[in-house]
Amino acid sequence: MTGLSATKKRTLAVVSAGLSQPSSTRMLADRLAAATISRLEEQGYEVEASTFELRDVAQDIMNNMLTGFPSAKLEAVIEKVTGADGLIAVTPIFTTSYSGLFKSFFDVIDNQAMAGMPVLIGATAGTPRHSLALDYALRPMFTYLHATVVPTGVFAASEDWGSGADAGSTLPDRIERAAGELAPLVAASERSTQVRDPFTLDRSFSPIGGFQAQ
């Protein structure tokens, strides 16, 4: 493996919490991924993208919630997501917020594992009246996880899939703008090449106590 090819590979994780198949949530996730990948490829990056429908691991997520550990299938998904150079996370808006499945997935992930992750958030709903859920629900959640959320979140209401250039900022425009914000962060990321050792002890840790105990 040459140094050049090693530095030019990036991984992108795409998480969709859409429930129907096909779903407009997945459609939005795919569009965001394609736009991001195409920008990275223009800059000479080879992108390995992995897309996960949370429906496929829905029972595993709830089992993890109850038992405290992920099934092998869910663990593989979590490793791909947390080890990626960037994440595109898209949820339907249910009852004014992210879906419970979407939240549950991030609830069972170690709350340190998303630190520094470049994230593009997206959401879908029946009407544009829910669009602010991106900024009052998804963005604070990723901020809590110390992820780096790009300024543009992409919301697609049903009507966005049928509106043209006369609608002002169209869905394709927003997708392109968001991808343009995410791609440079993914390009600059070293996350996928980092080795994470769960047994690394905090530098200040001492097995006899690090305080004034004597």
Binding site: I208, G210, F211, Q212, A213, Q214
Partner: peptide, 25 residues
């Protein structure tokens, strides 16, 4: 974790040292 570390450090001494002077957090 700090509780487990400090309290065991004391317990370890109490069983091994006849007279213990100790101060901790």
């Amino acid at each position: 974790i700090p509780l487990a570390i400090e309290k065991y450090a004391l317990l370890h001494r109490l069983w091994r040292e006849e007279v213990v002077d100790w101060q901790g957090q």
